[in-house]
C-alpha cells in the first residue's frame, strides 16, 4: 500500500497544485486554469527541444527531485522524523548546489536566497521533531500516526510550522527565494524543457512533504487530519493572495524571531509538564 502511495505522490502533488491554482483564481474572482493544468504543462515541457547549460547543473536538479521523492517516501513509510528532515535538507542542498553550478546571476541570487531561507526554517523543523520526541519519547513517524493527536500540547510548534509552510511552498509573504518576476524564478532560471520538468515536479512533491508534516499533528484522527490540511491549505492561499513579499532579512527575522520563541516555549512546556 505504501509503495502505491509513494509512486502516486508526485501525481497527487500535481493535482493539489491544480486545485490550488483554481482556489487562488476564485479568491481573485477569476475562473482559473483547468484542474489538470499542471500535467498539461508537464507534457508540453516533454515536447521541447532539450537545451542545457552544463551537465552538472542538470544532474544536481534531477538529484534534487529524486531526493525529495525519497524524503516523501520515508515519511510515508514512517521512519525516523529527524532523519527525514535531514534527507529533505539534502534535497534542498542539491537544489542550492545546482543554482550555484552555473555562471548565472539570477541563479546565484536565487540559490543564495534559498540558502538564507534554509537558515530560517531548518532550526524550526528540527525543533518540531524535538517536540514530538519530548512528547512521545520516539521519532518514529509510524508510531506518531498511531498515537493521540498532539495538536493540543504542541500547538505552538504547529504555529512554527505554519511559518515554515509559505517558505517551502514559495508563497507570499515568504516567496523571496523564487520571487518570480524579480529574479526570474531564482534557482530554476537556467532549466528548460524536460530538465525543468524535474524542478516543476519537485515543487509538487514539496506540497506533499509539507502537508504530510501537518498531518503528523493529527496523530491517529483522520477527521482532524482532513480538517487541518484543508484549513492550512486555505489559510496559506488566503495569505498568499493578501500579502506582499517581504525581504530576505525580514523573512529570517520574522520566522526565527517568532518561530524560535514559540518552539522554545513549547519545548519547555512539554519538557517540564507545564
Amino acid at each position: 500500500m505504501n509503495t502505491v502511495w509513494i509512486i502516486l505522490a508526485p501525481l497527487i502533488g500535481g493535482l493539489l497544485y491544480g486545485v490550488e491554482r483554481i482556489v487562488r483564481a476564485r479568491m481573485q474572482g477569476r475562473k482559473g486554469p483547468p484542474l489538470l493544468q499542471p500535467f498539461y504543462d508537464m507534457f508540453k515541457l516533454l515536447d521541447k527541444r532539450p537545451l542545457l547549460v552544463n551537465p552538472a547543473h542538470v544532474l544536481l536538479g534531477i538529484m534534487h527531485f529524486i531526493t525529495l521523492w525519497i524524503a516523501v517516501g520515508l515519511i510515508i513509510t514512517g521512519t525516523n522524523l529527524l532523519f527525514v528532515i535531514f534527507v529533505h535538507l539534502l534535497a534542498s542542498i542539491f537544489l542550492v548546489a545546482s543554482g550555484f553550478s552555473v555562471r548565472s546571476v539570477y541563479s546565484h541570487i536565487g540559490a543564495n536566497r534559498e540558502l538564507l531561507t534554509m537558515v530560517a526554517y531548518e532550526p524550526l523543523l528540527i525543533l518540531i521533531a524535538a517536540g514530538f520526541y519530548l512528547k512521545n519519547g520516539y521519532f518514529s513517524i509510524e508510531l506518531i500516526h498511531e498515537g493521540e493527536p498532539l495538536l493540543g500540547s504542541l500547538w505552538m510548534l504547529f504555529g512554527a510550522l505554519l511559518l515554515v509552510i509559505p517558505i517551502k511552498l514559495k508563497k507570499s509573504p515568504f516567496d523571496a527565494a523564487e520571487a518570480h518576476q524579480e529574479i526570474v524564478g531564482g534557482v530554476e532560471v537556467e532549466y528548460s524543457g524536460v530538465y525543468f520538468e524535474f524542478l516543476y515536479m519537485a515543487k509538487w512533491l514539496e506540497y506533499i512533504f509539507v502537508y504530510l508534516l501537518v498531518i503528523l499533528f493529527a496523530g491517529n484522527s483522520v477527521m482532524m487530519a482532513i480538517v487541518l490540511v484543508s484549513s492550512v491549505f486555505l489559510l496559506v492561499n488566503l495569505v498568499d493572495n493578501a500579502t506582499a513579499r517581504v525581504r530576505i532579512p525580514h523573512l529570517i527575522a520574522i520566522t526565527l524571531g517568532i518561530g524560535l520563541t514559540l518552539s522554545i516555549l513549547n519545548l519547555i512546556g512539554v519538557g517540564y509538564g507545564l
Binding site: 477569476r30 475562473k31 482559473g32 498539461y40 521541447k48 518570480h180 524564478g185 532549466y191
Partner: peptide, 21 residues
C-alpha cells in the same frame, strides 16, 4: 489581468526565455 483571465487557457507570463513558448 483578472478581467480577461488568460490563465484559464494555461497562459503564464514566465519572463524567462528558456521556459517560454
Amino acid at each position: 489581468s483578472p478581467r480577461y483571465d488568460l490563465e484559464r487557457f494555461g497562459v503564464l507570463n514566465s519572463g524567462n526565455p528558456k521556459q517560454s513558448d
